[in-house]
Design a binder for these strands. Structure first.
Lengths: 142, 142
DNA sequence: ATTTAGGTTTAGAATCATTCTTGACAAATA
DNA sequence: TATTTGTCAAGAATGATTCTAAACCTAAAT
């Protein structure tokens, strides 16, 4: 079944290939903020000949076309989010799980910054501990 | 001259060494948000025997003690900020320059997130184009 | 049917940032 | 002095990401 996401990508002047469709299917509606490696592992199950380079190429292409967000909130690796509508994120400092924060904030910058930069966007990173990690810490008596 | 920053670090139970003092001096009051490599290059001028590992060790130690911030805003590398007071950052998408954004924002998270995470902090990333890069783009007729 | 041209994929090498390991060393302690 | 503890240097190792070169696919042109 062809998803809306696949249609969107296809409609933006990109050639569709089985590999790309598999990557798009993996991303479509995916709220787990997967890394390139997780996407590679997932699509490899269907296409064992899939190359890591194809995953990176496709993700870079999607990022350049504004069809996925490349998140830097995880210091260890980039994470990808097919939801490009304005939203923010929280990362668990224990396990690295990332969740969406659907909220809008008034974020006016001070005058000195407004003069020195033409602003094009912003993103709020929240740091916290998820339920699972909090419970685990309690069990260990912390 | 011994800076306040050096005294703070020294007072937090770590041994002071010439290498560490050089790194602290490099960081003290530094608002350029240097990368590990930039710090290494700088302190190497004074101490050519300085090892990259020492820079990373020292930065990790300072980060663990809460004496520097490790910024993930630059997708290419980590940046360090000796100013640990609450503030945010803007990065120039052209040249990667990072500037401080001294502002406080009301950032309450939605109920579903507040239930799923114990929040410990947040950070706003602004994306923009600095004067220099904006002018350069104009010269090229963009 | 063949050729050509362009973009795509693959596999692996290369790169870059970062972490790890090991042995030497130095100050602090016994 | 001997021991402990923490630090340092050098380089190896790791891991994410990018690059390269050759093979591949598809569509258009012959």
């Amino acid at each position: 079944m062809i998803t809306e996401f696949t249609k969107t990508v296809s409609g933006s002047g990109v050639k569709l290939t089985p590999q790309r469709m598999a990557i798009l299917d993996c991303l479509n509606g995916n709220e787990s903020h997967p890394s390139a490696e997780e996407i590679f592992r997932h699509v490899s199950q269907t296409y064992p000949m899939m190359s890591f380079a194809t995953v990176y190429n496709t993700l870079s292409m999607l990022r350049d076309k504004g069809l996925v967000l490349e998140l830097t909130i995880d210091p260890a690796r980039k994470r990808y989010d097919p939801n490009v509508k304005l939203h923010h994120h929280v990362i668990c400092l224990g396990c690295g799980k990332i969740a969406d924060v659907h909220a809008e904030y008034e974020l006016d910058v001070p005058a000195d910054i407004a003069e020195a930069f033409v602003m094009s966007g912003n993103h709020v990173e929240f740091y916290g501990t998820c339920r699972a990690c909090g419970n685990a810490a309690q069990l260990k008596g912390e």
